[in-house]
């Protein structure tokens, strides 16, 4: 059983990597170097000063921007979601702001904040905010009326109501928004550096491409992909903790049907 599951888990990826390795082994094509050389370039390029000089600052900006967007989005979303009038008032504006493709904000923010760290963080915040905000609004709006009434009957209010009822009930939606925001955040982290920067992950990878350092460029693409996968795995671990109660509830509801 364990063997079977291991094969199912690792079988296809192993075959694909092996196929890439074999197919590219004798490659003399300048643009498609052998996988062995890409991996060697990966080791030489990224395990060293670059990790501190380029990778860490990029990730730090992502972390700051994402956290700010998360907090602001949830706070504003709870406020808007709790008031039907405020919701009706802001809905068209929010729909429009959300529909703007986040990358076009890069030139706009450059105008306001130059091309420093502040610009990159602001770009990430301005892109990640909307999915969190709109999903929070939806989640707060859809609180089970029975639960809300029960809380009212027991005179549960203030912070307790916010923590135990509002945020709890909205958390599946908030997590959905946070997941969308994370993938947008990664995109914006890379783009803001590709568009205008002198350091950072996106800048370095594009620089490799422009100077035709092909194996290094491939290794950069691999690293970006790997970061995306790792961040999504991390997100899933956090989600399993935060939403454990919800998934359990769903499983029970499904099983009893």
């Amino acid at each position: 059983m364990i063997v079977r599951r291991t094969v199912a888990l690792l079988g296809l990826p192993a075959v694909l990597v092996a196929a890439w390795w074999v197919a590219s082994a004798g490659s003399t094509d300048f643009y498609r170097p052998p996988l062995a050389r890409i991996l060697a370039a990966f080791r030489d390029t990224w395990f060293g000063r670059r990790l501190l000089d380029d990778v860490a600052p990029s990730l730090a900006r992502l972390a700051v921007g994402y956290t700010v967007a998360l907090c602001a989005g949830i706070a504003i979303g709870v406020a808007i979601g709790a008031s039907p009038r405020l919701r009706a008032l802001t809905e068209p504006v929010l729909e429009f702001l959300r529909a703007i493709p986040p990358p076009v904000l890069v030139p706009v923010v450059i105008l306001v904040a130059g091309i420093g760290d502040l610009m990159k963080v602001l770009v990430i915040v301005s892109g990640c905010l909307w999915p969190v905000l709109l999903n929070t609004v939806e989640g707060v709006r859809a609180i089970d009326p029975t639960l809300a009434d029960t809380a009212r009957v027991y005179h549960i209010g203030g912070t307790l109501r916010l923590r135990r009822l509002v945020l709890r009930a909205a958390s599946p939606q908030i997590v959905t928004g946070a997941r969308q925001a994370l993938s947008i955040g990664i995109i914006l982290m890379v783009i803001s550096e590709m568009f205008a920067a002198s350091s950072g992950l996106g800048f370095t990878v594009v620089q490799f491409q422009r100077s035709f350092a092909i194996p290094e460029m491939w290794s950069g693409v691999l690293l970006l992909g790997l970061l995306g996968v790792l961040l999504s795995l991390g997100f899933r671990a956090v989600e399993a903790r935060v939403l454990g109660w919800y998934h359990g509830l769903r499983a029970v509801a499904r099983g009893s049907r």
Partner: peptide, 26 residues
């Protein structure tokens, strides 16, 4: 489904902007 699950889960979160240098090159 079983055989591709891990591959899909791995390829999906790869940010498509990572492909920009490749796309330009090709």
């Amino acid at each position: 489904r079983e055989a591709t699950a891990s591959t899909v889960e791995f390829l999906r979160p790869i940010p498509s902007v990572a492909l920009i240098p490749l796309a330009v090159l090709l």
